[in-house]
């Protein structure tokens, strides 16, 4: 048998480590797409002091603190407030009128990272007069990032960008009303946080959330392989009320999925779908 290349061996090391992490910690990355996972693992490896994944593995499986650093490295999702302003504009113009017809609206923001988009949604709904009539369940696999999200504190240098996004997303107020600047950080208003419940949740292993009017999962499944994508979509389908809305990232699509036929496209280029009422 010919000797394997370094690449082939490192692919095997990654598979073995993912299996080990699942068995030891219950975190399941076995169905994560390889290209991004490999890049993130290599980045972690280069700062870890270990020469190879295999050399790191022994300690990773025994030392939870070390594992936490790896978890941070491979699950970090970056976001920004009102990312894709035209998406939030579409929510405001096309979806909010439906949401207003319900006495109370429940929204699941799956893979909320440090909370930027959940806060964006809260601002939007308050501006649309839904204060006191909605709750956002914002979940992420990474507990550390959930804590950060709860704080609602962001570097001041990002606020300029967030403000521009807010304006392009059709914001009707003044963005500066929603935060207080302290030194080089901005803290978001407490009344935004009142509407959001942050919780740790793994799309790969945990169960569904009941009776949602809207689910947002934007740019999270891009890191998943097909079987995991299908699992997550089934999870969303069972968590969404009939007539509820499913929102994906602008470069994701619901085409050719198991649940596709039960959903209609509401805003085409924004990947906003609605769960169909049962056919008579």
């Amino acid at each position: 048998m010919t000797q394997m290349t370094g690449d082939e061996i490192s692919d095997i090391e990654i598979k073995l480590l993912m299996e080990g992490l699942f068995q030891v910690y219950g975190h399941d990355f076995r169905d994560y797409s390889e290209a991004s996972l490999r890049r993130r693992l290599n980045q972690w490896l280069s700062t870890s002091g270990f020469a190879t994944i295999s050399l790191a593995q022994s300690q990773l499986l025994r030392d939870r603190a070390l594992f936490e650093t790896l978890l941070r490295g491979i699950t970090v999702n970056v976001s920004e407030m009102f990312r894709d302003p035209s998406f939030f504009k579409a929510i405001r113009e096309h979806i909010v009128p439906y949401l207003k017809t319900y006495p109370f609206v429940k929204i699941w923001h799956a893979g909320c990272a440090s909370g930027e988009e959940a806060y964006s949604m809260a601002i939007l709904l308050i501006e649309e007069g839904l204060q006191g009539r909605f709750r956002i369940y914002a979940t992420d696999i990474n507990e550390e990032v959930i804590q950060k999200a709860q704080g609602g504190i962001y570097p001041l240098q990002e606020l300029q960008h967030f403000t521009r996004n807010y304006q392009n997303a059709g914001g009707t107020g003044s963005f500066s009303d929603y935060y207080t600047a302290r030194y080089d950080h901005a803290i978001l208003s407490a009344n935004l946080r009142e509407n959001i419940v942050f919780a740790a949740h793994s799309l790969a292993v945990d169960a569904d959330f009941g009776e949602m009017n809207m689910i947002l999962c934007r740019n999270v499944m891009i890191y998943f392989k097909q079987p995991l994508k299908e699992r997550v979509l089934a999870l969303f389908d069972s968590s969404l009320i009939t007539g509820g809305f499913l929102c994906l990232g602008t470069k994701e699509t619901l085409d050719n999925r198991n649940i596709s036929s039960q959903y209609e496209t509401i805003v085409p280029r924004m990947q906003i779908y609605r769960k169909r009422y049962a056919k008579k």
Partner: peptide, 21 residues
Amino acid sequence: APANYHLLLERDSTIAFSIDS
């Protein structure tokens, strides 16, 4: 590559995106 996404390639020659920093 679309705006605001990294473009990557998987071993099976399919396209992958990421919004990593």
